Amino acid sequence: MTRVALVTGASRGVGHGVATALIDAGWIVFTTSRRGDGPDGATTLACDHTDDSAVATVFERIVADAGRLDLLVNNAWAAPKGFGGFSDRFWERPVDDWDTLIGVGLRAHYVASVHAAQVMVPQGSGLIVNISSFGSRGHLHSVLYGMSKTGLDKMAADMGTELAGTGVTAISLWLGLIRTELLLSLGVDEFAGFSLQRAEDPRFVGRVIDALASDAQLSAHNGDTLVTAELGARYGITNDDGTPPDSHRSAFGGGPLFPPAG
C-alpha cells in the first residue's frame, strides 16, 4: 500500500523540502500553498489556511483521490506585515501580527489536524506532525513566534492524550537552523550564532519524518516533542552533502518541553 501525505505550506523552504523527500521515498504527496505551487511529483492545491472551508475542501479532495491519509505535516506559516527579521520588540509592532503568527502559525495547524484526525481515526492509523522549533524553549524572533511554537508543542501533547488507543500519533518537531535557499543566498557562514555548515537541509527534515512514520515504535512517542537533528542521528540520516546536523538542545538550555520532565 502506498502511503499518502499532506504537507501544508510547501511552495518553498521546509515544506518544499519535506514534500520532495517524501516523494523520493515513494509517498503519494499532496501539498498546499496560497498559489497552489509546490514540488514536482506532488498534487499541488491552492489553499488559504485562514479559510476553514478551503481547508475542508483540501481534505475532501485527498479522500476522493486517494481514499486515505497517513501523514499530515503542519508547516503552513505566514510572516507578519513588514516582516524584517523580527527585529522590533513586541510593543513596537502592530497587534495584528497576531493574525499571521497565531492565526496561521497555530490556529491553521489545529484546523488541519481536526480534519486529518477525522480521516485517520476511522482508518486506525496515521501521523500528525507539527513543525515547531526551539523557540518554545527560549526567546527566538519574537513573543508571538514563541507563543505559536509553544502552542504547537502543547497541542501535540494534548492531542496525543486524546488519540491514545486510536492508532494515530501526534508529535511536534523542533527543527534547528534550516539551510533554505534564502538563507544560503546571504553568503554567510553562520546565522544567529549557529553554523550553516552544520544546519539542516529541508529535505533532511523530510527524510527524518519518513523514518519516524516508518518506525515500529512510533506510538511510544505519541504526544512528544522531538528534535530533528537527534532523530537523524538515531536513524542514520544526514544532510544532502552527508554531514550530520547539530542539535541546538544545549544552546536553548534543556530537553523537550512536552511532556514535562517527571
Results as ranks from 00 to 15, higher is better:
residue 128 I to Y: 07
residue 129 V to E: 09
residue 131 I to E: 01
residue 132 S to H: 03
residue 132 S to A: 10
residue 134 F to Y: 15
residue 136 S to C: 04
residue 137 R to Q: 15
residue 137 R to Y: 14
residue 137 R to T: 11
residue 138 G to V: 07
residue 138 G to W: 10
residue 138 G to Y: 12
residue 139 H to A: 14
residue 141 H to P: 13
residue 141 H to D: 07
residue 141 H to S: 14
residue 141 H to F: 13
residue 142 S to T: 14
residue 142 S to W: 10
residue 142 S to C: 15
residue 143 V to Y: 10
residue 144 L to F: 03
residue 145 Y to M: 03
residue 146 G to P: 09
residue 146 G to A: 06
residue 146 G to D: 07
residue 146 G to L: 10
residue 147 M to E: 13
residue 147 M to N: 15
residue 148 S to T: 09
residue 150 T to P: 15
residue 152 L to R: 01
residue 155 M to K: 05
residue 156 A to Q: 10
residue 156 A to F: 01
residue 158 D to R: 13
residue 159 M to E: 03
residue 159 M to S: 04
residue 160 G to F: 05
residue 160 G to I: 09
residue 161 T to S: 12
residue 161 T to I: 10
residue 162 E to R: 12
residue 163 L to Y: 01
residue 163 L to I: 07
residue 165 G to C: 06
residue 165 G to T: 02
residue 168 V to I: 07
residue 168 V to D: 01
residue 169 T to F: 02
residue 169 T to L: 05
residue 169 T to Y: 04
residue 170 A to L: 04
residue 170 A to T: 00
residue 171 I to D: 08
residue 171 I to T: 06
residue 173 L to E: 07
residue 173 L to K: 11
residue 173 L to P: 04
residue 174 W to V: 11
residue 175 L to I: 09
residue 175 L to S: 05
residue 176 G to I: 00
residue 176 G to F: 00
residue 177 L to S: 04
residue 177 L to V: 05
residue 178 I to W: 00
residue 179 R to E: 00
residue 179 R to S: 06
residue 180 T to A: 12
residue 180 T to M: 09
residue 181 E to M: 08
residue 181 E to A: 12
residue 181 E to V: 14
residue 182 L to C: 14
residue 182 L to E: 13
residue 182 L to I: 12
residue 182 L to K: 14
residue 185 S to P: 02
residue 188 V to I: 11
residue 188 V to G: 07
residue 188 V to Y: 11
residue 188 V to D: 08
residue 189 D to G: 12
